[in-house]
Structure formats: C-alpha cells, structure tokens
Design a protein around this nucleic acid. Structure first.
Lengths: 216, 216
DNA sequence: TATAATTCCGAACGTATGTTCTTGTCAATA
DNA sequence: TATTGACAAGAACATACGTTCGGAATTATA
C-alpha cells in the first residue's frame, strides 16, 4: 500500500482539520465536495476511504459527519502540557508517589502549564496539593501546588522530596551529597541545615515548581 | 424568561458535552433521545430550543449535528491571559507599581496564565520578578515571580504589598485593619505580626499568585 | 503498445436526521 | 372551575447525507 497522500487527499485532510476546529463538528461529504469544488461526492468518498487506509482518519459507517481524525486535532494549545494533580501532601505524612499514572479520566484536576513561564519536560511530572505548613522552610505553604518530577537520584543543589527513614517523614530540602553524609538545606536561608546518613534517606522526586494562588 | 434549566435540560446539556468530547462531533437529536431514554425526538427538539433561548447553545437549522455549545467546549482555548512582567523587586526597595500598563508589545516577558490552575480576572494584573530574600516571611524567595493586582485598598486577610512610610520599605503581608492600627501578619505562621499606624501605610497592590520554577 | 491499477465522474438509492403538527398531561393562577 | 403555560408523546414529513454502481479518464507497469 502506498502511504503517501495524493494532493487531493492532503487538501481534504487539511479541510477537515480546519472545519472541525471552526465548527466543533466534522464536515459532511458534501460540504467537503463543495468547499474543494470536487465534481462528485463519490470522489470524496473514495478519497476518504483512502485516508482511512493510510491511517489518517477513521470513519463510522452510516453516521452523519462520521469522520474522526486519528490525530485528535490540536485541541490543546500547541505545547501546553497537562499535569495531573494526583493527591495531597499533609504535614509529616509520606508523599505518595504514584508508580504509574492512571487513566487520564480519573484525574479530577490538572494544571495546564504553558512554556511561556514554566519550561518543563512533560514526562514523569505530577502535582500535589499542599495541606498545612510542614514545608514552610522550603517556602511552601498551605494551599500551594507543587510540581514534582519522579526520580530517585539527585544532583547536588536540587530540591528534592526525601524520605527520612529514621524520622519516618518526608520533607522538601535542597540536597547535597557530602560523601559520608548528606546535607539537607532548607530553601529559607535563615534556617539551619540538617545532616543525615546516606542510607537513611530515599529520594522520592525532584521539586520543579510551585504555584500559589491567593486571591483573584 | 426563566433562566433556570429543568432537570431534563441539564441532562441533555451534560450529554452533549460528554458526547462531543468523546467523539469529536455533537450528537444527533435521536442519539440524545436514545441515550437519555426520551420518548420522542420532538421532546429533545423542544428542550434543545429551550437551551438555545437560555443561551446554553446555538443550533444550525437543517444541519445534521448542528449543535454548538455556547461555552466553547472544555478545550481551553483563548481564555489564557498574558500578564506582563514589568520589573523586579529587590530587598527593601519600593515596589514600582506602574500607573498604566504600556503597550503589550513592549513587555519583554509575559506569563501566560491558564485558568485551569489560576483563575484570575485579567485587568490590572502585572507580575514582578523577586530578587533576594526580603520576603521570606511571605513564603516568597529569590527568583520567584509574584502576580499582583493594582489596587489601593484591601479587605481584611488579603495579602498586600504595603509601603511603610516611616521605614521607607515595601513588604508583603497579610492585612488586617484593627481600627486604631493595622496589623501586618506574615504568611509564615511561625513569625510575629507587626503593627503600624494606618496613616503610615499605603497599599500598593494585592498579591494574587506566586510562581516558582526550580528545575526542569 | 497492451494491460492493469488508480482515480474520477454522474446519477441514483436508502436511510439518518432535523422539523412540524396534533394531541395530551400536569401544575400554577385567578 | 376555567385558563394558561411549560413540558411531553407520537406520528409524519422533507431533506441532508452516506453509500453504491456502471463506467470513463488517467496514470502506472511491462
């Protein structure tokens, strides 16, 4: 099978995209025919079937406007990434880091990040809502939303969520590996660092952003 | 005209949203009828017209699937608002609040806010980049971006930028008018409030949001 | 060149779908 | 009680729309 699209097929595909974006519904066979000045509906039908075979779209037989684009259209703005808010961090409670993210539909909430102010890779990102003031020393307060990336190692200087086994808590601190020990430095410069044995800490993820809304 | 939607109308509206999101096309009258187990297409037709009159949707006569949602679907399109980053706050320096915002084009930087995580009115908004740690007590650190709304009064409990004349500094604090004095309360609950004479303070704007990016 | 595959054409067919009409039910109001 | 308005039922109508079919034109293949 030839995978390349004929000029007419490209034209039709482009028109379907345009029309869908503008009207919120796909065009009919005849709307395509008129708009592109094609002589017969059967020609449109033929090329639509070709586009189906070439994997560009799906058709639902005997259903009006039964055209579905395979690439689900650029509905979300170009490069915004949706980050699921997977839960809540409360004071002292361990941060639950989801092993694998469930179906998109079960996320009640997402934050949609626009690269104009936060430039992030989309993979492995998740967000948590902060409850309480357990992380004031990281300049994070009640109601904030923290953006995290799932990872189990850290470079020096990165702010990470670390599980401290001996104290059975998770906190957000700047991470420094000093060989025999790790230094966990609060983001707030007026506060003192704490030191821990490397075997006593487990990195849960890296903090990549904080979002806080107070009023409107 | 009654603006409230009958149960059946709410149901229909919800179904249209669901169906559109799932299939990329609106449902037909008969699809609505079957799905919601309505006895007749005319009932659907009637209620669709009601929904038109109540402003929930538009209909295109004699067009299959000619239903358009007034609220342009959850595809969060052009409702992002661009907020100019008009300057920098350094430690102790007064916050420069621009009298009127210049042309959109001269702002080098903007943040594009998406209502999915920050729901804000667009007017009077501006943003400042934070330099230094003069506002740690408001849980704001070096490199943060603060979103402010220009206003000169405040409700109790709002976090505002206040100019303290006698100390010739601007800080961010929660504002409480206690009659003979104003109480300025740090957002960090572990810190003590300060008190000032009402004539000594001038509100520069209200803090509506904070954005912080640490890594990527 | 002959042959086959691809693409296109025009018309017709069947049904999916929007619309209309008449009648009926029910609750609120006077 | 009578009246009115909102809402629903069922049937019928008109047409928008997907589909099919015989055949022609065009392009590729040998």
């Amino acid at each position: 099978m030839n995978k390349t699209l004929s000029p007419r097929q490209k034209e039709i595909l482009r028109y379907i995209r345009e029309f869908s974006a503008e009207h919120g519904r796909p065009p009919t066979v005849r709307e395509i025919q008129k708009a592109l000045e094609i002589s017969s509906t059967s020609v449109v039908d033929y090329n639509l079937n070709q586009l189906v075979e070439k994997g560009e779209l799906r058709r639902n037989r005997n259903i009006s406007r039964g055209i579905e684009l395979t690439e689900p259209a650029p509905s979300l703005r170009d490069d915004t990434i949706s980050v699921p808010i997977v839960g809540t961090i409360a004071a002292g409670a361990p941060i639950e880091v989801p092993e694998s993210l469930p179906d998109p539909h079960v996320w009640g909430d997402t934050v949609d990040l626009n690269p104009s102010f936060m430039d992030l890779r989309g993979d492995g990102l998740f967000a948590l809502r902060v409850k309480g003031y357990s992380m004031v020393d990281a300049l994070i307060g009640d109601g904030d939303i923290v953006l995290m990336r799932h990872q189990e190692t850290a470079e020096n200087g990165e702010t990470v969520a670390v599980w401290i086994e001996s104290e059975r808590t998770t906190t957000l601190k700047k991470f420094y590996n000093e060989g025999s020990r790790v230094r966990l430095q609060p983001a707030n410069v007026t506060m003192q660092p704490i030191y821990a044995d490397p075997t006593d800490v487990a990195i849960q993820g890296k903090l990549v952003g904080v979002i806080r809304q107070l009023g409107r």
